[in-house]
Design a protein around this nucleic acid. Sequence first.
DNA 1: CACCATATGCTCAAACTGAGTATAGACGAT
DNA 2: ATCGTCTATACTCAGTTTGAGCATATGGTG
Lengths: 309, 309
Amino acid sequence: MPRSASRSVVVDLIAVLAAVTGGEPRVMTVEHGSALPSGPFELAHRSLQHGLRDWVEQRTHHPLGYLEQLYTFADKDRAGAESAARTISISYLGLAREQAAAAGAAEWHGWYEYFPWEDHRDGPPPVIAGTLAPALAAWAESAPSAAERSHRRQRAAISFGLDGATWNEELTLQRYELLYEAGIVAERLRREGREEAAGAGRAMIADHRRILATAIARLRAKIKYRPVVFELMPPTFTLLQLQRCVEAIAGRTLHKQNFRRLMEQQELVEEAGGATTETLGRPAKLFRFRHAVVEERAFAGTKLPLARS
Amino acid sequence: MPRSASRSVVVDLIAVLAAVTGGEPRVMTVEHGSALPSGPFELAHRSLQHGLRDWVEQRTHHPLGYLEQLYTFADKDRAGAESAARTISISYLGLAREQAAAAGAAEWHGWYEYFPWEDHRDGPPPVIAGTLAPALAAWAESAPSAAERSHRRQRAAISFGLDGATWNEELTLQRYELLYEAGIVAERLRREGREEAAGAGRAMIADHRRILATAIARLRAKIKYRPVVFELMPPTFTLLQLQRCVEAIAGRTLHKQNFRRLMEQQELVEEAGGATTETLGRPAKLFRFRHAVVEERAFAGTKLPLARS
DNA sequence: CACCATATGCTCAAACTGAGTATAGACGAT
DNA sequence: ATCGTCTATACTCAGTTTGAGCATATGGTG
């Protein structure tokens, strides 16, 4: 593998900016919700991270709390027939607070518009049993061999929690890719010049919806072992607001008492004094995030059965 | 952020190929251990992943079990003074089996050569107390303000498990970056034209050691919630061999009985029949990985306190 | 002032985890 | 032949964590 320069490659950045407002997770879009914000890779910036941060903060007029690299997409056929040149897209996931999301002329769209099957907060959404499950079943049956049919059925069942399998909210990307492979989402049909299907969520240009699926999957996984939720919250909040925010992202409901216990025993929050009066019922205490713990503790991932030293 | 093409960008791929042989984790290198294998981004391949896989398999003459994208590095000053053009490096982490690692003319180096402070299998390595801790303390004391001094001390203590803090094996990248910032690793000193320090591990060209640190951190985290160890094992193995492999990667020892229980209750392995005679003492049963479980189960990440539906 | 809605606290059993002790099977030395 | 050593495998147990219920506090509303 000799070292030689490969030119004529276009590099751009794509940002998935997420916020939770009014109990709904939203993503910043352009082109009336059909694309994620993107732009050329600027040579001027010291680092990718800095360039993107500057650009985002300029656009939202608010500091951006959290930013991490998501994935670099470079498959040959990802842009569809639209572009001839090879494009590499480096995507980032950013988290913004409520106020930031509300302000400015930026377009924010609820991310379940694009993935209606991902919101299980009120139980399994009807689109699964009504549209997706039958379409996936048809796709499975259309396989050439019996082995392949069985394999497809199993993949569909595991991804979508069918046939008694339990729903796993972290499989967002696998689910989207399965629907793409099965020809159920519009992006795939569009590629092949066919009619667009209804009921499989709102489409985006190129592979932007796949990038959004990647972001959702990453955030759903991350929220469980790093205290990133707080990047989405206002300075003070009630525990229920915090729980609602996690639920919005995870797309499922949590056990209230256990969620509280978890927050308290991890010492991630402290009372900020005061209480909300806006809500009905007994007023809830206000809390704030203990920034100190992030520094004090190195948030470990999961555990291995360690031996004592 | 108008759409416009940015040319004159060099894109290349860097592979971190890991294997565990003889209880030591190793990484494939070129240039006598001073660089990771890399090459230009080929436009011909259908996808990044495919291109890299072909190249690696050609080189090692063995199928590559696992391959995932690691990170895309694009900071302006990462290549040092050596290169004028802006380079983007897309790095991948691949796992190879023992045989693959042993065969061929490829150079494999133990990764603890580069990170001697990361191997805690025989307790905290002497290099920490002997070299790193004093150097970090000096660096902390050299800070201009008291607040900064205290902050530096805390960072060092948490990263390296000093002052009673517990060692967290997943912080490999943070530790390397801290040592870089403190001017303790050779890469930093080299940049500034100073003498190279001894005892802080073997250096690599450009930012290759940082990329290796990223790979180690990722693998250490991943091994806990995805069954990727098996990609490093031969077809059949004893449970102790499996444990030694995990220990080699994690850089710490595990509790034997609990490790076994974990393996068995997760049904990740099944008896392959037969036993090893090579070892002293009672022969150990041979096991094989149950590939089926990967398909059957969607390996969830960590847990949230879910409510029943 | 009863009632409603939400917040917060308490309890308990099932599951999981860390870690110890005991037994089994092969080999070599006495 | 037997004993000791070494490793593998099995059993046990207490402390902790988790899932989930019930109970009580505290405000507003009719």
